[in-house]
Amino acid sequence: MHLTKKEEEMCNGEYGETIRKSMDILVALGDIYGAPELVDITSAQVSGVSYKTIGQAGLEYLEDLAKDDRGVATITSTLNPPGTDLDNWDKFGFPEEFSIKQNQIVDAYGKLGITKTCTCTPYLVGNVPRFGDHISWSESSAVAFVNSVIGARTNREGGPGALAAAIVGKTPLYGFHLKENRVANWIIDVETELSGADFGALGYIVGQNVGGDVPYFTLNNIPDNNDLKTLGAALASSGSVALYHIENVTPEYAHADKVNASQSLTVTKEDILQTRESLTTTDKEPDLICLGCPHASLEEIKQVANIVNGKTIKNKLWICTSISVKASADRMGYTKTIEDAGGNIVCDTCMVVAPIEDMGFEVIGVNSAKAANYVPSMCGLDVVYGDAQDLIQFE
């Protein structure tokens, strides 16, 4: 891989150990994937944040990197969800030792120049690249959204690679950074109209079939951004889809080369209904309804506030979102409406990376196919899958 003179100096440690270590990672990735060079990026989104997933070794690695004050992020960079609500972990019953370690991880990232606004929907809190920008994002659902809906260019990076890219401001030029790799190789014909959790079911079906390929959808109705967020999260979790196209919706659909896609799949109403049923793993009632995977938008919080307004919720309700979106919900009165009904808006974390298996819950109600896919395997708990209005029960 060709390096500029400055990049060679970075590799040689002339800009400090943290930058040298970061360049080692980027050069290794470039060599593995045959990248001819590094490309400048405008944005990064870093995963590997929850103490549940990176543990003590990850914390020590980050604190070691943070000792070098020359090795800090040079571009807009945000963090993925941690394992707790960073400010209110005691209020919601997160384990104390876990929560202390979790805050230490986020503080270390902060010393590295990564913004401590933790969310899997960075495009809702100001980390919004432009069409065609080269970026380095790592959270799977965020990658699917930013590639597909915004039209920026990123591979599905690992946490260390995205952190290295944030610090250096560059990433290897390969994969979805190249226009020729952003064409469709599957045609997905959807024969039914979709709403709500149907989009998660569709993504789950398609992800299982296409793996890491690029699907091109024809839909009977136009999805909004929340639907696209839901679809991409399911595509990325049941398969490893990092880019999709929707006819007349996403910005690159006209250049996706649909005609040359060699494989096809038809999805019927029956397929959607069967998949929705299959994502539920128990007949028991949920003891926690957890919405916001990916993190809830202000519009989604408004919808829940309208559902619960003036009522009393029977089961515990968490809506997971960023602290920035919650601030907007506070001002709009949605938070008070939800809290008056017995629910809570939980910041920073989500049901997948939080230690909910240690907090007395057994069955989690979710409207996210990504959560339905991951909670049984990562948390060991059962899930009930459905739309928010059906999951929330009232006294």
Results as ranks from 00 to 15, higher is better:
270 E>Q: 10
375 V>S: 11
48 G>S: 15
191 E>L: 03
79 L>E: 04
1 M>L: 14
206 V>M: 03
263 Q>S: 12
140 S>W: 15
363 V>T: 10
251 P>I: 04
223 P>R: 00
145 F>A: 04
363 V>Q: 01
213 D>Q: 14
282 T>V: 02
187 I>P: 07
392 I>R: 01
320 C>H: 15
127 N>G: 06
369 A>E: 04
388 A>M: 06
79 L>Y: 02
150 I>H: 05
155 N>Y: 04
316 K>M: 02
271 D>W: 01
170 K>R: 15
78 T>Y: 02
383 V>E: 15
286 P>T: 08
89 W>R: 03
131 F>P: 00
171 T>V: 13
234 A>I: 06
168 V>N: 11
31 D>K: 13
37 E>I: 05
289 I>E: 05
188 I>R: 10
290 C>K: 03
75 I>P: 00
308 V>R: 09
198 D>Q: 12
50 S>Y: 04
149 V>T: 11
293 C>S: 04
355 P>Y: 13
23 M>K: 10
173 L>M: 12
316 K>C: 05
303 Q>C: 05
311 K>F: 01
25 I>W: 13
156 R>G: 03
39 V>P: 05
21 K>M: 12
263 Q>A: 06
114 I>V: 02
297 S>R: 11
333 G>E: 14
378 M>I: 10
258 K>L: 01
327 A>E: 07
127 N>Q: 08
117 T>H: 11
113 G>P: 01
274 Q>P: 09
335 T>A: 03
227 D>H: 13
186 W>F: 07
320 C>I: 11
81 P>W: 15
287 D>M: 00
324 S>W: 05
195 S>T: 07
382 D>C: 00
311 K>I: 05
213 D>N: 14
340 D>P: 03
381 L>A: 01
378 M>F: 13
58 G>L: 00
85 D>W: 03
179 K>H: 14
105 I>V: 15
239 G>V: 09
62 L>G: 02
70 R>Y: 07
124 L>I: 08
292 G>E: 08
71 G>M: 02
292 G>D: 05
322 S>P: 03
41 I>F: 09
